[in-house]
Structures are given as C-alpha cells and as structure tokens.
C-alpha cells in the first residue's frame, strides 16, 4: 500500500465519519465544515501526490517530513480552536452559574415574603 492510497482511504473515512455524525446530530454543522475540509485535503493529496512532493521539494524537506509538517499544522490549529471554544464555554458557564445562584436567592426571598403575608390555611375539619 502506498502513501497515496493511505491518504485516499483516510480521506474517504473522514468524509463518511463526518457525514454520519452530523446526520445523527452529534456534531454541529459548524465543526463539520472544518472536518470536511480536512477530509478534502486528504483526498486531494491522495489523488495528486505531486502537490505534497512539490511542497517538500521547495521546502527542502523529505516526503515524510513534509507530510508530518502538514499534519502537525492541522493538529495545532485544531487544538488551538478547541482551547478558544473551551474558554468561551467556560465564561458562559460561569455567567449562568452566577445568574442561577442569584435568581435562586431572589426566589427564596420572595417565597419567604409570600409565606409571611399569606395567613396559614385553616386546620382541616
């Protein structure tokens, strides 16, 4: 098996996986776009291996090193995006946690006021 067929297989698998997860609503379309781009890149490099060979030659890298470089770039970009999304998510969670806590306190106060105002129900006969 050559590197090209491996990339082709990887690209096809990535496509199928992405479609499958979006179909079952486990992956947001927003992220699916990124993953489809990765799958397309793999397919492209599988069909036209000279793309990466040309890049390797111009960058004076061996073929495996060039593949590694591309892969690491992708992994870095992906992880960084995940870090940023996590930070957003963290901020939102904090805000919601605080709002819930404050609202609960207000609710407790209102309930107490209400209980003080309403006379106790007459005892059952």
């Amino acid at each position: 098996m050559t590197a090209e067929t491996l990339m082709l297989a990887g690209g096809v698998t990535a496509f199928l996986l992405t479609v499958y997860w979006v179909r079952s609503r486990d992956l947001r379309e927003k992220y699916a776009l990124g993953w489809l781009a990765v799958a397309s890149l793999l397919l492209l490099l599988g069909i036209f291996p000279e793309l990466i060979m040309g890049f390797a030659e111009r960058a004076r890298l061996s073929y495996p090193a060039a593949v590694l470089f591309v892969a690491l770039t992708l992994i870095y970009l992906f992880s960084f995006t995940v870090s940023v999304s996590l930070s957003h998510l963290y901020r939102r969670t904090i805000r919601l946690t605080q709002e819930v806590a404050i609202l609960k306190q207000r609710l407790g106060r209102l309930e107490q006021q209400l209980a003080e105002r309403t006379p106790p129900p007459p005892p059952a006969p």
Partner: peptide
Amino acid sequence: THVVHLPVNSGIGVAVQTGYRFAAE
C-alpha cells in the same frame, strides 16, 4: 444578611464576582 449558593465550586474569583453582580442587580 443574604446567602447565595453557587451550584458548583467555581473558584474564589467567581465567588467574589457573584457578590459584585449581586450588588449590581
């Protein structure tokens, strides 16, 4: 005296900020 309960442990900064939010509200 008021008591606010954060539903999950969130750290000192978040707890203090809850106080500032409470004041703002």
